[in-house]
Design a protein around this nucleic acid. Structure first.
Lengths: 192, 192
DNA sequence: GTCTATACTTGGATAGAC
DNA sequence: GTCTATCCAAGTATAGAC
């Protein structure tokens, strides 16, 4: 399996296209032909970089997860208070959603998971675990220093936050309007 | 377009299969061949009942939406207090989720919406609008009679409830465990 | 790294017999 | 209402030339 840090410029553009397609139409909704047209090459050129569609999917999620962790680190490095960190976290989802109501990559793959290869599902699971762990830590900090108040535990609140963000994207797509993930979470945060 | 109230026994079983498949692998994840095997007929027999896959999808969502409204009526007829009604509502989603972490039909279709026919998307949108309207009414009642307390408006809380339920199913599928929609919503309700 | 050509499979859909 | 046979398009993937 190729590693996302060793991608050639062409391979990078292929992964870019795959990510955009998965966000919009899902793994089962795109073909190598779609990617070929977006990148400007022919179908077999994709196979030169990624042997199978599953491998392309795995590398794409791994890169996505890695970039997401970089974003989490950036939040930790630029904000100190739990409420600010949580709002910045919600903004990560919202910036994706604002692009034509695109989904979170792992939210989409999670919905499709029953029809996907186990290699892909494992990466998605890891993404959610990383996110829950990070949220739990931030919320614990907020409950401890008094910047957040709740009668619930940090890990329960973390799961609510994550479900709320993913769900707001799903519902927002179906409604064609809807508040979107950031505003939905802000309303929730103002209730606790 | 056929109406779901006029389905023959065979057509009914085809819609049953389509619903189960969409809940588990999504619209783009199943084929007429899958349905044929589940029902125990050959592919062309499906076309005798539904001219196209889109028509099958539309009829399936219409039947699903109708049954969901029946369930909402049942809740209204058997429970009077807003908190009880909301918990019973969450249980509707949870009973689906407990079957192999299956998704809500419209949650799945909403995630896939960018790749679906407009006829299907319109039914999904209608489903969400019905749900939001019902939730808003129940929550308004609860806020008025004092059985619910919040500094937020009923329609904001309704959107949170719906997003939370759909999102808990998505995240729960990806994590392979996770609390599921009912417990997630109960935690939320105990915070307001 | 990209191409043409092609193999093989599956998917949605139709024709026409029973 | 269901079947066999078939069409055509699209999907993943491979072989081999440039």
């Amino acid at each position: 399996m190729k590693h996302f840090s060793e991608l050639s410029p062409s391979a990078e553009r292929i992964v870019d296209a795959a990510e955009e397609l998965i966000r919009n139409v899902g793994y089962n909704g795109f073909s190598f032909e779609n990617i070929a047209q977006m990148v400007g090459v022919k179908k077999p050129s994709i196979h030169h970089h990624f042997a199978t569609k599953v491998e392309l999917g795995v590398v794409m999620v791994q890169r996505y997860s890695h970039r997401f962790r970089q974003a989490l680190l950036h939040i930790e490095g630029t904000m100190s208070k739990a409420p600010d960190r949580l709002k910045a976290y919600a903004e990560l989802f919202d910036s994706t959603y604002r692009q034509n109501h695109a989904m979170c990559v792992c939210g989409m793959l999670s919905a499709e998971s029953t029809s996907l290869a186990e290699l892909i599902n494992a990466e998605v699971e890891r993404f959610f675990q990383i996110n829950l762990a990070w949220l739990t830590e931030v919320i614990t900090q907020g409950l401890t220093d008094g910047s957040l108040h709740s009668n619930q535990t940090a890990d329960q609140l973390a799961e609510i936050m994550l479900a709320l963000l993913e769900g707001a994207m799903v519902v927002g797509r179906g409604l064609k309007f809807g508040r979107g993930p950031r505003k939905t979470v802000e309303v929730f945060l103002s209730t606790i």
